[in-house]
């Protein structure tokens, strides 16, 4: 690599430096927009005691679900989990700690983390079990709770198009948590469907500027569908 060229050609290089006990953000909503190859590589590396921040936890045998097969996740932080039998088992056994976080609060914790903001007040969750132990503050007669933001050692994200400098464009609803996670990683690795030369993406339409991205790898995606629903 030279200058701003972020492209790596092997998954070894893509996840070089990923170790046990790290905090890893993984993009996607359900199975939509997940970095499939990077998750598989995490599985092969068998890194352990991972704190994983992702909206969901995959399904049995696909997406983050595969990391459960070797008990790699110590703590799972997400908004909706348990679509997989293995997850349910490890959760109920106490093998894995689960921190359920409202989806919008999760998105904002990551956005704020990437933006250098350590916490924020939100009305979401006030008076509910998730507010337990959190500071409450009143603004204009309404009560808000203090939520602390998240950053990660590695953010593994998926984008549609990248240029060599790491400028990214997402496709449809495959964007979801990926753009915020890109900003919140000490090392952000983007697995993408297409890599072009600098100058070939219109600067007007870049979603994630390359400054947030350390590595880019060309992926090969299955794009499995969780709930294929068609018009009758």
């Amino acid at each position: 690599m030279a200058g701003f060229d972020k492209v790596v050609t092997s998954y070894d290089d893509a996840l070089s430096g990923l170790k046990d006990n790290m905090t890893v953000m993984v993009g996607g909503f359900g199975l939509c927009g997940i970095p499939e190859g990077l998750i598989k590589k995490m599985y092969e590396m068998n890194v352990q005691n991972i704190t994983c921040i992702s909206n969901n936890a995959g399904v049995d045998g696909f997406g983050l679900g595969i990391l459960l097969e070797r008990n790699q996740i110590k703590t799972m932080i997400g908004s909706y989990v348990g679509e997989n039998a293995l997850f349910e088992k490890q959760f109920l056994n106490g093998d894995m700690k689960v921190i359920l976080t409202p989806q919008g609060t999760l998105a904002e914790k990551i956005r704020a983390g990437g933006a250098g903001i350590p916490g924020f007040y939100t009305a979401t969750g006030y008076g509910t079990p998730i507010a337990d132990g959190k500071e409450v503050k009143e603004f204009n007669g309404r009560k808000y709770i203090l939520e602390e933001s998240y950053t990660s050692d590695f953010s593994l994200i998926r984008a549609w198009k990248a240029d060599r400098y790491g400028n990214l464009i997402y496709r449809k609803t495959a964007a979801n948590f990926n753009p915020m996670m890109a900003t919140a990683g000490k090392i952000t690795v983007a697995e993408v469907e297409e890599i072009v030369e600098p100058g070939q993406l219109d600067p007007n339409f870049i979603h994630t500027p390359g400054i947030f991205v350390q590595r880019v790898i060309l992926g090969n995606f299955e794009k499995r569908i969780e709930q294929r629903t068609v018009k009758k």
């Binding site: 989990v81 409202p102 009305a123 979401t124």
Partner: peptide, 12 residues
């Protein structure tokens, strides 16, 4: 399984 976006929706 989680609250998904429901807490944000009712708060906002």
């Amino acid at each position: 399984k989680g609250m998904g976006g429901a807490m944000d929706l009712v708060a906002g």
